[in-house]
Design a binder for these strands. Sequence first.
DNA 1: GCACTTTGGGACATCGATGTCCCACAACGA
DNA 2: TCGTTGTGGGACATCGATGTCCCAAAGTGC
Lengths: 190, 190
Amino acid sequence: MSSTTKESGSRNRTRRAILDAAITLLATRPQASLAEVAEAAEVGRSTLHRYFPERTDLLSAVVEDSLAQLTVAVTTAELHRGTPAEALRRITHAYFELSPVLLVLFGEHLIDTRKDLIGDLDEVDAPVFELLERGQREGFFDNGVSAEWLNRVLWAVVYTGIAACAEGAMTRHAALESISRTLERGTRAE
Amino acid sequence: MSSTTKESGSRNRTRRAILDAAITLLATRPQASLAEVAEAAEVGRSTLHRYFPERTDLLSAVVEDSLAQLTVAVTTAELHRGTPAEALRRITHAYFELSPVLLVLFGEHLIDTRKDLIGDLDEVDAPVFELLERGQREGFFDNGVSAEWLNRVLWAVVYTGIAACAEGAMTRHAALESISRTLERGTRAE
DNA sequence: GCACTTTGGGACATCGATGTCCCACAACGA
DNA sequence: TCGTTGTGGGACATCGATGTCCCAAAGTGC
């Protein structure tokens, strides 16, 4: 509930630099060493250890920060507004823009570190879940599968687009278009 | 092109046991140690090293074996027969049954070891690609996205179902049903 | 039963990642 | 300017994973 409070200002900046670098790096290479993270953050290895004494401390902070960013995105999307189709498009877009965060959260390494944060993830995308259920009730989304399944598919398809971009197989625009199209068709009711 | 040829018979059995255990284990824990692999295969660590001197040797063999299994599955599915919808259902089913193999191939750790095997993967599911293109030509599958995209979505959705099963969130039957349903709707033309 | 093959496990060296400590130096604020 | 705060890098100990070697024991086929 508080991370950018207190502290000297320069401490906050350093902390953010480390976190940003870690998220970017761990998104593509979850097994990256702390030395690599420090280098990516343009920070000494001892400084990194000063902020995050152990590797798990860094991992936890990365996941927490990712969840925080995700929360902001979900909240901003105001999924209760407009038609389910429109809201789906908004959240899809929002997820896509959070590429590194998605990658970090989707990668399974968080399982190794903090089991308790998995529950937080469910909490964070509760609004998405509600959107999916609302869409099902209103006849927009497929009722033949569970809302949980739709949620999983949402994540998977967005992830696929991000991965395709990362490989250079598609442009961001093309990926976003394909994601939206496939999701709309795959999730809507007859 | 040859792996179960020659050799003493007991060597083949041991090799298979190691490979099977490795695929199963690495599917869920790509970073598992060689000691764990040996234990899972009920084999001494020195025996493991005798068959696969280095870790990369084991990883390569695992990927090669996975590709071989995938090849058999794709060939057996005879994707050129029947309607695209039927063929899609067959390959979906086949992929799903190969859960651990899919997990191993989908996990990115293969990228670290043998870049050259990625091309082999494209080669292996070339028939799937052809199916998707055929379906597009015949008006069964969505023409608004690329066949490559459809292929990625196919993998992603099957993977999602497998993951859901692994977490105990769904039964295998429910997962397979959801996968098929979502894929059919998500990929077909208007 | 005998010779050959295969196996299991211990002992050992090595390597990279991690974590700790310390100290000189730079940055910053009153 | 001076004291406080933050930083970078080196030295070091530790740990787990990896890889090598060897030998006694179990398994296999003739």
